[in-house]
Design a protein around this nucleic acid. Structure first.
Lengths: 139, 139
DNA sequence: ACCCTGAATCAGATTTATTCCGAAAGAGGT
DNA sequence: ACCTCTTTCGGAATAAATCTGATTCAGGGT
């Protein structure tokens, strides 16, 4: 796996300590955190990092395609450090998000009616439901 | 097409003037509005309807499956009155959302790794990109 | 039709998520 | 090391959604 610094340089993004820390933390997580959680994460090891920097940086990364701003019906924005094509399962109860593989037949081409709308730069599929843990707890 | 009142009754939701107006407006639109726009819409014809009622009602409807809270990476929540399976194209520039058909092979079964996560109640796919109009304007 | 009761709505205050602003600090080039 | 432009910080501001407590309404019973 490539290092955070390497990824930023390759994307033509100026590397600052804050940016490297944030990207590094996000790459190490598989739970698709929100800005608040990333701020908390980053603050151990860099206590002075500000809220604004987190939001600004996440926007910058998402814009540059280094990370993904997720398409999910949650209040807070969620982010994914993995940009390889895959899908997500969102628990509507506890709001945890799990990765699921994308069936190969779907990874193929973009359907014609979609291309007719414009230039597609990102495709996201989310399965919304109740996860096993929440289902078990409910009874 | 069924009337708003009819849909609500069938879903076991008590019908109030506000609920009928909101659902009716949403069903008549194809632009996947946010709460603010629906409030404005509802207010001509019912000037006294409150912000709170709009949010509360949309949550109720979404919970009941009467409408869909959309999975999109936008600041404001967006809603869809059409619950037949279909996908969406979101312009990251102007944030308009267009309906696109869902390829039949995908309407079929839920992949096994997804079912393993929990009980799926909703599947959403969004294609994010730049729409024709925005692309044209850019040069 | 009228009354009753629990549920729904209203207006305004409050919370939560994100962005803006101006001053201070940092990155990369010379 | 110095300069210039960019980035960050901290706090204030904005925007989106929810809560609160008093009032109104829907629908069932008489």
């Amino acid at each position: 796996m490539k290092s955070a610094t390497e990824i930023l340089q390759r994307a033509g993004i100026v590397t600052t300590r804050q940016r490297v820390v944030l990207l590094d933390r996000l790459l190490r997580r598989t739970d698709h955190p929100d800005a608040e959680r990333l701020l908390a994460e980053a603050r151990d090891g860099m206590p002075s990092i500000s809220v604004d920097t987190v939001y600004r940086t996440l926007n910058l990364f998402a814009e540059a395609g280094v990370i993904q701003r997720m398409a999910v019906p949650t209040r807070r924005a969620r982010f994914d450090g993995c940009t390889d094509p895959h899908d997500h399962f969102l628990c509507s109860d506890c709001e945890t998000i799990q990765d699921v593989p994308r069936p190969p037949e779907r990874s193929a081409a973009i359907p014609a009616p979609v291309s007719a709308c414009g230039i597609v730069s990102d495709v996201q599929t989310v399965y919304v439901g109740v996860c096993r843990r929440c289902a078990a707890q409910k009874r």
